[in-house]
Design a protein around this nucleic acid. Sequence first.
DNA 1: TAAATATACTGTACGACGCACAGTATTGTC
DNA 2: GACAATACTGTGCGTCGTACAGTATATTTA
Lengths: 115, 115
Amino acid sequence: MNEASEVVSQLQQELRRGVVVLAVLSQMDTASYGYSLIQRLAERGLEIEEGTLYPLMRRLEKQGLLASEWDTTETRPRKYYRLSPLGREVLAQLSAEWSGTVAVMNRLLGSENHE
Amino acid sequence: MNEASEVVSQLQQELRRGVVVLAVLSQMDTASYGYSLIQRLAERGLEIEEGTLYPLMRRLEKQGLLASEWDTTETRPRKYYRLSPLGREVLAQLSAEWSGTVAVMNRLLGSENHE
DNA sequence: TAAATATACTGTACGACGCACAGTATTGTC
DNA sequence: GACAATACTGTGCGTCGTACAGTATATTTA
């Protein structure tokens, strides 16, 4: 196996930490259930496994950023999540943080390319 | 303490995982020693503690991405690091990965703002 | 009509890394 | 001489995405 690929994929995983949370929160302005969120994120370029998303949603709810309720009127019961007021606030701050991080990285990576 | 701030600072830390590695690698085209690298990164907007950077440099060397040599000709001995060929390759791939991640997040966050 | 696939979710252990310290040593400044 | 700056080593911890294992049932396919 290509040595660089191994290290890169490991670091890719580290890059996703935090990013996945931000991505999920950013889609919760409208209520969503897990399975459809996975599909919507995939459409927009972010692949995430069920085994990753469901625990994450539960954790975010536990942290007070999301609120959930069951919809059992359909043939299949679905757990809908939406942003809580705290979640909305955290999302705003994280988005700003993300923008700042991107700006810094552009500066660092840009200087690397120009040197 | 502001509840949102707590969660945000925790997630900020998660965002830094991977990012710090990329930032450091991006500055190693020219040989650097730890203390000066901390200062250069700070000038460019990335704050990093010595207790974070020195173990990181050692880990990156262990992973074969950096190579080091001591300069003991000055009054103070300094450990200079530079990118290895593998490190150069990993940096290129991680940079591409980062660009892709930023593009995806722009799409996700942009759609959130427009909705 | 039975098998396969899709839909929808719960549960849990693990590995990796930034952090937060503690610590050492010496040079340079006041 | 005291303090700050410079320059580094060492180590344990908390967090989260991942990688599974698992359950259940509706829908589609052969």
